[in-house]
Nucleic acid binder design. Structure first.
Length: 492
RNA sequence: CGGGGCGUGGCUCAGCUUGGUAGAGCAUCUGCUUUGGGAGCAGAGGGUCGCACGUUCAAAUCGUGUCGCCCCGACCA
């Protein structure tokens, strides 16, 4: 068994602010280090969480008219070079295969860092007429990016993700798609992961290599650092031109398609960990939790054991249609041990069931989000009670995270104030920015904070009510006129 | 690639300064008692101390080299 079971270990988990992510991920058995540096093994419990995210998102992707497909892992090196910005952005972090079948390859193969190029190669064959558009595809895949520094779930050399790739006849339609899918990500994050986000536009320096515009959703982790949780790109005709992805329009004219691409990854599991946890461990939101309800039987004698387990199985039967549920009937652990164990693993609801409960026809329920103990809940109508409770926990986790985000989002009007805030209380800082990359770089060099995005809507701020925030102001760095507010933060 | 730290039973670490037969806690196994918030007692198994070379009568300990990992910076979903 894992070391979670050791009290001193758990205390260690609490103390290590910096290592919290890896501690939680390792001790809760979500992931483990692999023999290859920078890579991780996703263990069954962690993978089950990813499957929940994946299934929820997959449905939304299909509901918005996309189809899944699969493109190969290997990309001819020449493909990557076709789009100038793209190759410049990705070349340094590409893994390249030079040998196969015992021979040096004639053309090197890049292990995909993302699939725009190979997909466009195929698109150019498939798209002929305006009648072939829009072409709306998605793929679930692994990608490899040779990062210098890695962290479990947040940045690993290989990671799992989905990448959507679409072709449209017009700029407007492609831009609409870009925003639509960003909205899907926002919904996934807020309604399933219970993580509030800020959505907006990336500045030029943070734009995807090869895109015209990049939009993103940004979350604020419990340690005050921002995390980019998803991106959606309007690619314009950049890749279409590089790969000759053209169609004949209604007038018989040949046109380049307008494209989008968008993705979220296993990083979302990292976001989940870094958003929902306390000193007792993880807190899974019910809609994503691999196990939503755990039943802990309590008994002394063999006779009691038999009776209690029978009742547990009855309850499981009556609930399993609606919940992912598990009975922890292991004999070698005491009930108290199991309470702590499942709390650490973040199971949202626990049912304690012992002889006393059985004779009273009740159960004891403990909710993970508040650790509140609900005694004497009637077995009659339990299903409805749990459905309601589950919704409540889901909403409460979002509310807590949202309160945290709002409390740690502040407006600053000057560089001096900015520096003071970012060093003392990390979080989102909203401020005016003139739009020049030199001012952006200046802040980055001084504070390590970057512009996370130009938000669609100014987020609620701790110190200034939204309705009082001005539309125009002065850049915190150069003091020139600024017509936009941006969100700064230190980021993962 | 720079700076810092660490490699000793499954896990967390002590021992190293000042060389002299490898330790603790947790975990595991057996037995009995236990079980509503991390159970107790008794017993047992398990490590050529990352690797290599060197110094020495003798190396976990000293020296040189090497490999790996973690943390901090430069790159990024």
């Amino acid at each position: 068994m894992s070391k979670v079971e050791n009290i001193s270990e758990e205390k260690e988990v609490l103390d290590q602010g910096e290592n919290l992510l890896s501690k939680l991920a390792l001790e809760a058995e979500l992931a483990d280090y692999s023999p290859v540096k920078g890579c991780m093994v996703i263990r069954p419990y962690g993978y089950a969480a990813w499957e929940q995210v994946r299934d929820a998102l997959d449905k939304m992707i299909k509901d918005t008219g996309h189809q899944n497909a699969y493109f190969p892992l290997f990309i001819p090196e020449s493909f990557l070079k076709k789009e100038a910005e793209h190759v410049e952005g990705f070349a340094p972090e590409c893994a390249v295969v030079t040998y196969g079948g015992g021979k040096e390859l004639e053309e090197k193969l890049v292990v995909r860092p993302t699939s725009e190029t190979i997909i466009n190669y195929m698109f150019s064959k498939w798209v002929q007429s305006y009648r072939d558009l829009p072409l709306l595809l998605n793929q679930w895949a692994n990608v490899v990016r040779w990062e210098m520094r890695t962290r479990l779930f947040l940045r690993t050399t290989e990671f799992l993700w989905q990448e959507g790739h679409t072709c449209h006849a017009t700029k407007e339609e492609a831009e609409e798609e870009t925003i639509k899918m960003l909205g899907v990500y926002k919904k996934l994050s807020e309604e399933y992961l219970a993580i509030p986000i800020v959505d907006g536009l990336k500045t030029e320096s943070q734009r995807f290599a090869g895109a015209v515009t990049t939009y993103c959703i940004e979350g604020l982790m419990k340690d005050g650092k921002a995390l980019q949780m998803g991106t959606s790109h309007y690619l314009g005709q950049n890749f279409a031109k590089a790969f000759e992805t053209k169609f004949q329009d209604q007038n018989g004219e040949l046109q380049f398609v307008h494209q989008t691409s968008w993705g979220v990854s296993t990083r979302l599991i990292g976001a989940l960990i870094m958003t929902h946890h306390d000193e007792k461990g993880l807190k899974f939101p019910p809609r994503i939790a691999p196990i939503q309800i755990v039943i802990v039987p309590i008994y002394k004698t063999d006779v009691e054991k038999e009776m209690v387990l029978k009742k547990c199985k009855e309850l499981e039967e009556s609930l399993k249609e609606n919940f992912r549920i598990k009975i922890d009937d292991r004999d070698q652990y005491s009930p108290g041990w199991k309470f702590n164990h499942w709390e650490f693993k973040g199971v949202p609801i626990r049912l304690n069931l012992g002889p006393k409960d059985i004779s009273n026809n009740v159960v004891e329920i403990v909710r993970r989000d508040t650790l509140e103990k609900l005694r004497g809940i009637p077995q009659e109508g339990l299903l409805q009670y749990l459905i309601k409770l589950s919704t409540e926990i889901q909403e409460n986790l979002f509310r807590q995270a949202n309160d945290f985000k709002n409390k740690n989002t502040e407006f600053v009007a000057s560089e001096k104030e900015f520096i003071e805030k970012i060093t003392t209380t990390p979080g989102f800082l909203v401020s005016f920015w003139c739009g020049s990359s030199s001012c952006e770089d200046h802040i980055k060099e001084k504070t390590k904070a970057t512009i996370r995005c130009i938000p669609f809507n100014t987020p609620d701020c701790q110190n200034i009510p939204v309705d009082q925030m001005k539309k125009e102001g002065y850049c915190i760095v150069c003091n020139k006129d600024a017509k936009q507010k941006v969100i700064f933060a230190k980021a993962y």
